[in-house]
Amino acid sequence: MFDLFAYGDAGWGDELLAGLGITLQLALLALPLGLLLGFAFSTLSLANSGSLRLVARLYTTTMRGLPEILTLFVIYNGVGVLLNLVMKSIGADPVEFSPMLAGVIALGMVFGAFAAEVLRGAFQSLDPGQTEAAQAIGMTPMQIFTRVKVPQVWRFALPGLGNLWINLLKDTALVSVIALDDLMRMTKVAAGFTKLPFNFYLAACLIYWILCLISEAGLAKMERHANRGVRRAGS
């Protein structure tokens, strides 16, 4: 049964590995986009202007309330339709919107909405006295952000962001529905070819599970590092 997963022409090991590569690529590209959106919308949701706060609230509420797969379809079909309208209007040939790009954008936008809420909580738990102290010794707003705020926000937000990363890893499976050759889709191909769907889907599940367990271990380590030097009550 193990030669099913052998490397090379005989087994499906290399195909699954290639799919895993796409899955990881997708997750690692969506992560920075999501963090960027998260920082942007958490800043908006803490802005003085009520209309900016409303924009942030609308974005986070909508994106968190919609099924991820619906967001993916809207981005994939919607941007595709818009792109072709634009191409038509400038007289160019219609282009194919890449599923990879659609996946990165959709997953990044979902991650961003959840991350914005996590980061908002983290920014709100900062001690304002520290910002004032930093201002008093003449730090620029940028310096305050990178040297005083971010290291602490990081510490507060890490558990929440870690959960979001694990959700992101799992959500990458959805892109198989829009014909991207990720782990899930390669599994489907292998399952259809060998007529052994149970073996292959179980293998895919185990691979995702291992990814999550590795992530959990890594995140625990990062949390310990981020919390070094913090006194804990009662320990």
Partner: peptide, 16 residues
């Protein structure tokens, strides 16, 4: 909690 629900669904639906 460590596997995508889509994979679980396929495991049951196609795997059966």
């Amino acid at each position: 909690r460590g596997t995508p629900m889509l994979a679980q669904l396929f495991l049951i639906y196609y795997g059966s």
